[in-house]
Amino acid sequence: MGPIVELKGVDKDYPLGKVTVRALRGVDLTIHKGEFTTIAGPSGSGKTTLLNLVGCVDVPTRGTVQVAGQETSKLNDRALTSLRLHHLGFIFQTFNLIGVLDVYQNVEFPLLLKGGMDKAARDRRVREIIEKVQLTEQLRQKPNELSGGQRQRVAIARALVAGPSIVLADEPTANLDSVTGGAIIDLMRDLNEKEHTTFIFSTHDHRVMEHARRRVRLEDGMIVDAGLADATPFPEAPAVEAAEASA
């Protein structure tokens, strides 16, 4: 399959007081549709910056970023918003659920923004995805009534509900205990296999990395390992046990 994300010679500088932080330096990265990629690296190596660029919430200082065939630095705010809405799903490290909405409403939110779906179809889709993340019983609960794992599952359901071509996840297991974290990885791997959704994770969680087909490694804003050599399918062994054994 063709490339869905393509970064060429990307630099990203941040002003920080009087100095400029070079978060990314000369990054070249191509990710194909259906890939399950992790981006690893120590804190401050530029993982989040890279995800922001791919997620169209930020544009590069130099170089080009193409997402779903469009070069993001050439798009205005409206077009970038539309690109996010139609092609991207976000799973945030801190879940970022909308506090005033319940589980159902949080998951429904992207569908409402996207429009073009009648109420019945929307309802079907929302319930289907909630069932997948096993939150049917928490349908009418507010985020503050849920456990960390449940919240993360709502976030995943929300990221997936509109059927995005790319799902971006920033340290999705960082705030979870190992059991919950493992279950979530299973869920996403399942989706990747069945629906060919492209997953890009930033993580330094070994359990996650072990399940990835491709492991990109960043250090000091540069790609030190594009992970192409290790581009293997998922190991056949049950993921959770393997992860826990290594922990």
Binding site: V57, R78, T81, L85, L88, F92, N96, I98, G99, L113
Partner: peptide, 16 residues
């Protein structure tokens, strides 16, 4: 701010 940022990231336009 966080909530609004999230909405924007999820694809909510400014007008929203």
């Amino acid at each position: 701010t966080g909530e609004i940022g999230t909405m924007r990231a999820l694809g909510a336009p400014r007008s929203f």
